[in-house]
Amino acid sequence: MKVGFIGTGSMGSLLIEAFIQSGALLPEQIRVSNRSPEKAQKLAKQHPGLTVCSSNTETASQSDLFFLCVKPLEFKTVISEIKDQLEARQIAISITSPVQLIHLESTLPCKVAKIIPSITNITGGGASLCMYGSRIKEEDRQLIESLLSYISRPLEILESHTRITSDFSSCGPAFLSLFMEKWIDAAVEMTGIDRKTLNALAGEMLLGTGKLLTEEGFSPEQLQERVAVPGGITAQALTLLESNLNGLFYQLIQTTHDKYEEDLAKLDAAFGFTINRPRY
């Protein structure tokens, strides 16, 4: 199987690295193209055997399955460039959340799907959110999820839930990292402890907490109950956090959805759609 990547920016290159490191793909199976050719050439030097194509059309036409790893407002241009070179048997996969399956199916003659990866996939962890177009058959779904299972836990979702699920699986590592950064900053300043120690402790804590939630079946509420003794230090600190965080996460969701809907409206206009969608 030949697998293409149109766009080798942050997430495109991450997926390529993850698939190669996990053994899901050999470099010889991979075709890439990028707006800045030097980025694609760098990947080829790191992974001998990987083919750098001269155009997006070449990448798409030479691949059985290819990932579209470009920014939302670049999509219409890329789609227009490659659509006439595609066959019905091929599978195009968008990793860009505002791009809708209907945008792709209305323009491309091939099968289409959408996945939302996460930076955690480079470790073989985290989820890959999966959505499938109407032309995808069961064997196509199994092929996609088999590939993704090397680097993640594939999870099929409703496309209408793309943004909120992405907040957790894809944006979540950055949100939690900011929380950790501010907590560590305060600890270093107030106690003099070295940052390296706390970085390591925070990482191990997050890893262990993740296992309690995924492998041991704890809910967030149950974890708090197990750790916080009534009247104890943790319980008092949780009260402080709850009072200060009250309302913040509603603002967080509104912020991510506002940006998503802004991009979605621009994509609808670019693809000639006028659709009234529910907000959440």
Rank of each mutant, 00 (worst) to 15 (best):
I157F: 02
S128P: 07
E156T: 15
K182C: 11
S170L: 00
I164Q: 14
A187G: 07
L73H: 10
L155K: 12
V112H: 00
W183T: 14
A187N: 08
R163A: 14
G126K: 09
S128N: 12
G192N: 06
P98R: 07
L158S: 11
E138R: 05
E159S: 04
L108H: 01
A186C: 13
K71P: 00
T96Y: 00
L148T: 06
Q85K: 11
E81W: 03
K182R: 13
R89S: 13
T191S: 12
E145K: 04
D84R: 14
C130R: 05
D185T: 14
N199Y: 13
E139D: 11
D194N: 11
C171P: 04
I136C: 09
L148A: 02
D167K: 00
I115Y: 14
G192Y: 03
S80M: 07
I95A: 02
P154K: 09
T107C: 09
S177L: 12
P72F: 07
L104G: 00
K182W: 00
L143S: 10
L178N: 08
K196P: 05
I144G: 05
K196E: 12
T197M: 15
L147D: 06
I93C: 10
T123Y: 13
D84H: 15
L108C: 03
F168T: 11
H103W: 02
S118W: 08
L178E: 06
R163N: 14
D167E: 04
R141N: 00
S170A: 11
G133Q: 02
D167I: 13
R141E: 05
R195F: 01
F175Q: 02
S149A: 13
M131S: 12
L158Q: 11
R195G: 08
A88F: 09
E156S: 15
A113G: 06
S160P: 01
S170K: 01
L86T: 06
P109H: 03
S106V: 03
S166A: 15
E139Y: 13
T162C: 11
C171F: 10
S160T: 11
L73F: 10
D167R: 05
D84S: 10
P98I: 04
R163C: 12
C171V: 10
P98A: 01
E74I: 08
D140V: 05
K114Q: 13
E105W: 02
R163I: 11
S97Q: 07
L86H: 08
H161V: 07
G192I: 15
N199H: 09
L198R: 04
I91K: 06
P72Q: 05
A187V: 01
V99C: 07
I136A: 01
S128E: 03
P109D: 02
P173K: 03
A88M: 02
S169G: 10
K76S: 09
S149R: 08
V99Q: 08
T162Y: 04
T107H: 10
I82P: 03
L176V: 14
E105P: 03
L198V: 09
I119D: 02
Y132C: 06
S177K: 04
I151S: 07
T162L: 09
I91V: 10
K83W: 01
K111P: 03
I144E: 13
K76A: 04
M190V: 14
S160V: 07
G126R: 01
L155S: 08
A186Q: 14
N199S: 12
T77A: 09
I119T: 15
N121D: 01
E74G: 03
I136P: 04
S134N: 07
G172A: 11
R141A: 07
C110W: 01
T165H: 15
I151L: 07
N199P: 04
S128F: 06
G125P: 06
S97W: 06
